[in-house]
Amino acid sequence: MSRVDARSDKSHVHSVFESIAPKYDMMNDIISFRRHKAWRKFTMRKMDVKPGQTALDLCCGTCDWTIDLARASKGARTIGLDFSRNMLDIGQEKVDKLGLGHVIELVQGNAMELPFPDNSFDYVTIGFGLRNVPDINQVLREMKRVVKPGGKVVCLEVSKPSWQPFKWMFNFYFERLLPLMGKLLVKRYEQYRWLPESLVNFPDLQALAEMFRGAGLRNVRAYPLTGGVAALHIGTKGNDGI
């Protein structure tokens, strides 16, 4: 399967995440050297969620960010959406263990066709999932549609370092070593080869910021993280709803 074909094949992406779900959290810790936790903490500080504010977390996976959002909102409506049933099942176990089942609702669904009315949430987030969707612009439009006027659309995602030699080192690690780690640690070479492939055509920091603006979001802010290996983007829906 070519990189272009793999990116456009929704069934392939779905099978990747269904198969890696049991070891997803462990591998995230290993391959990011636990930096994904620091990135999420930084993101939550920038979001500054207030008690009572609602949130929709797209591509929520095993629900770590969904849980952070629910805690920050002090019990306000929080929904996690993902297309992988296996991911959601693991996330539900976490939610139930923490006693947050009355606050967090998990929904199996498509980020490109959100099953929610316009202007429903104070925040709509997507963490490490935007590079896996077939149409980034469509997902951003949907995120803007369901966020309230004045609300924020937030993306935390792997990105592309721009300065050498760090760029070369990152590419070597992400493209060569990461799939081998997947093979050795969880017997999933092909699945972890997909992760670097998904970044090939993904926009860099500034290009994704322009896509946020192109979707009609305002006051777009972009933050490179850990030398640019990840990035945070935040955009605001106009108070006029446009």
Rank of each mutant, 00 (worst) to 15 (best):
D135I: 02
D135P: 02
I136L: 08
N137F: 14
Q138S: 12
V139Y: 00
V146G: 00
K148I: 05
P149S: 07
P149F: 01
G150H: 00
G151S: 06
C155D: 01
L156M: 12
L156Y: 00
S159E: 12
K160G: 09
P161V: 02
P161K: 02
Q164E: 15
Q164T: 13
Q164D: 15
F166M: 12
K167P: 10
M169P: 04
M169F: 14
F170H: 11
F170V: 02
F170K: 10
N171P: 08
F172W: 10
F172P: 11
F174R: 05
R176D: 03
R176W: 10
R176K: 15
L177W: 07
L177I: 13
L178K: 04
L178H: 04
P179Q: 06
L180P: 07
M181Q: 02
G182Y: 09
K183Q: 14
L184G: 09
L184M: 12
L184K: 04
L185I: 14
L185C: 07
V186I: 03
R188A: 14
Y189F: 11
Y189M: 11
Q191N: 04
R193Q: 11
R193K: 15
W194N: 11
P196H: 09
P196Y: 09
E197A: 05
E197Q: 13
S198G: 08
S198R: 00
S198T: 03
N201C: 11
M211H: 01
R213Q: 10
G214F: 06
G214A: 06
R218W: 05
N219Y: 07
A222C: 06
A222R: 08
P224K: 09
L225P: 02
A231V: 06
A231G: 10
A231Y: 04
